[in-house]
Nucleic acid binder design. Sequence first.
DNA 1: ACTGGTACTCACCGATTGGTGACAGACCGG
DNA 2: CCGGTCTGTCACCAATCGGTGAGTACCAGT
Lengths: 219, 219
Amino acid sequence: MLNETAVAALEQTNAAEPEKRIRDRSATERAILKAAKNLLAEEGFQNFGINAVARRAGCDKQLIYRYYGGLDGLVDAIGTDLGNWVKDRIPEDTGGMFLLTYGDLMERLSLLFLQALRDDPLMRRIVAWEVSENTEQVKRLSEARSKALGQWLDRMRGSLTPPKGVDTAAVNALIFASIQHLVLAAAAGGQCAGLVLKNGKDWEKAAGALKRLVRGVYG
Amino acid sequence: MLNETAVAALEQTNAAEPEKRIRDRSATERAILKAAKNLLAEEGFQNFGINAVARRAGCDKQLIYRYYGGLDGLVDAIGTDLGNWVKDRIPEDTGGMFLLTYGDLMERLSLLFLQALRDDPLMRRIVAWEVSENTEQVKRLSEARSKALGQWLDRMRGSLTPPKGVDTAAVNALIFASIQHLVLAAAAGGQCAGLVLKNGKDWEKAAGALKRLVRGVYG
DNA sequence: ACTGGTACTCACCGATTGGTGACAGACCGG
DNA sequence: CCGGTCTGTCACCAATCGGTGAGTACCAGT
């Protein structure tokens, strides 16, 4: 539900934009896509609908049907846009460090992923969506990301091998799961399982614990 | 003598209303609460509303306003009902095992929590709700649970002490976070971070990885 | 300058939502 | 027997939802 300030801001935006809509299809398409992403990032998937997107984009919802084939197509467009998320957010260079062991690699990836997720409200909403609904839409949205993370790991791994007897697929899934839930819970309620996560110091502690967890299994 | 319309009305009443709603407030309240819990567990919080609850409870929504003061009060009622979740679901006896170290304790709690969450669709929905919305309602809902988990840990800990230099609050938060996200993602999409979680064998692997993670930090 | 097609807006649809006021019938104490 | 309270039902409200059909404004090619 929109609160008064959001409504006021919207009206203000409309009022501040008396200029006539230009007849530029690609520009309109971009405006719609941008509006959709902002709306999803700011309001979450609960109030994510045709009407709300059109309202924010400042155009008629009919155009969303025409250009994207409805909400489904629009979500798909967001998804393909997010295909490069890992590539854009998580650098492949070692940042001047020497990654000698698989543990080094996973520690680095974990901390980078933690930071990237903290910094991206849109991705957070998508992950929350992912665990709340089971539509084909959402599945496709997140599949690309987990695949991309796996590919990142593959590329960076090189000749590094994990310790013997460790089920890396399962352990890494747990590590990524912990990061995602921690960030989501913190973004939603400021804490996770009783651990307050608000200022930078809180996050330093969390990052330290994450390091310990990773180093515990991978050395 | 009854005229035709009266007979028809009578038959209609009998046919369309096989059982008359009894005038029992507490029974109705229980029916509403049960309907709300089932609805939330089965459909999730997206379609959780006054109308849907009333429909499922088979009564008028007005009664929900009267008896619970609206959806908010109803959610609160669900919350207090869930106050004993940890107590009911996670046994305090050691199950015949000797818990000699803090690691033993955390391993046991982790596996129990994993199983309990897998078995409880209502709690899963609540956790998903928790990371998707930030209302006071939802916050109160989950606060009780994390508090209860902490208390369980306190009671069971006894004289066991964690390894030196480990930030138990942060590490445990990450462990619980990993469990919650793993179970939620699995329930929603059948996998988590590329790890398929469908049959029992998949879950055994996950449980094994969880053990390793816990043992890695706590020994 | 006409014309065809593109970009866009508008009005309307049925359904559903949260919410409220009025009313009917059962029960109980006086 | 009567009046009041409690339980439950119903009708209605404004708002919003997703979705569609029809019409308008504009621009480009000839």
